[in-house]
Design a protein around this nucleic acid. Structure first.
Lengths: 183, 183
DNA sequence: TGATACAAATGACGATCGTAATGATAAATG
DNA sequence: CATTTATCATTACGATCGTCATTTGTATCA
């Protein structure tokens, strides 16, 4: 069977959206093609008509999650607010709609070059964004370094806060990192 | 068939060692029971004689990786040296023998309670260790906060440095975080 | 030494994995 | 409008997943 062009495009969009959420929630290796297909309301074979392989789908889904459509990177923001949101319990408890870097980073190193390329581009973009919000009294090089260190802190804190089983320890990780970044 | 008590213990040790390495290298969801069995030189059914389920095996393997046997946490160390080693290219490029937190953190949040409990205990231990090496001029509470933030920074930097595809960006992440922690 | 216990191997099971061949229809072409 | 082409969905396939019942062989202990 074949559907209309726009219908196919909608299907594709729906697949990517579902995939980007499910992958953040269960990990890339943790979701199968039929789980993705079911979430998008189709049979798993259809994904192969659209993407050819799971690897290709992963590439697009990662790019989708990182892009504004899935990730919602604000254009204009205050750094402290951004950090506070990022290191909030709310963000910690909703990985499916949260930062793709924190959700996928550990797995990315084991993915294909295409996937890693897109992830890397996303990281670079975020670093540039953070860098632009660092105190303008600093030299560009120093601002980038601060941005790099801040990104690492934030990702690490979120990842650890999610992994840890103890609510207090988890909250402490977030709070201590928040303080460390604002001081 | 049955082997001697010590032989069984050795087998168990070999399984755990192989599992802790393979899991750090390919992820928990990325290795199957027969891959683990083969690496330990036995059939996959044998693992079930010893552990009963993959989940049980994962629990023990995570604990093994975190414990000194697999992770080699130094008793006595200077904080700066520890950070430098942790954020070195060598550590980045050998996840199989490296820090279990950085290798597994993303997946831990999706594991069973038993696994998460052991991971959490390991994190607590590391925080205590780092905390004890923070400047003694600070109050205990402040030292712990600094330790928490430092742990988050280090894990995040290592995870991002591994994920990213560009050698320069990867090295920059490590360097910037190193500077941020020593300053 | 014989009985028992238990680690390890075996092999089969259903479920799920990713993929490829097949089938059907919208879109493109004349 | 008729026909071809391209594209997407359906279905079937082999491989691998985690699990478990059974068998085998040897320590262990009465």
């Amino acid at each position: 069977m074949r559907v209309s062009k726009e219908q196919a495009a909608k299907n594709r969009e729906r697949i990517l959206q579902a995939a980007s959420r499910l992958m953040r929630e269960h990990g890339i290796a943790g979701v199968g093609v039929d789980a993705l297909a079911e979430a998008a309301g189709m049979t798993h074979g259809s994904l192969y008509s659209q993407f050819g392989s799971k690897e290709r789908l992963v590439e697009e889904a990662v790019a989708y999650a990182i892009s504004a459509k899935g990730g919602e990177v604000p254009e204009d923001f205050a750094l402290d607010d951004y950090v506070s949101d990022y290191l909030s319990p709310g963000h910690r408890d909703e990985p499916a709609s949260g930062c793709p870097f924190a959700a996928l980073a550990c797995e990315i190193s084991r993915q294909s070059r295409g996937v890693r390329d897109r992830f890397t581009a996303g990281v670079r973009g975020t670093i540039a964004l953070l860098s632009s919000r660092m105190p303008s009294t600093l030299k560009p090089r120093q601002r980038e370094d601060k941005a790099l260190a801040a990104a690492a802190s934030m990702v690490g804190a979120l990842v650890l806060a999610r992994a840890v089983n103890d609510p207090k320890l988890s909250a402490d990780i977030l709070r201590a990192t928040r303080n460390s970044l604002s001081g």
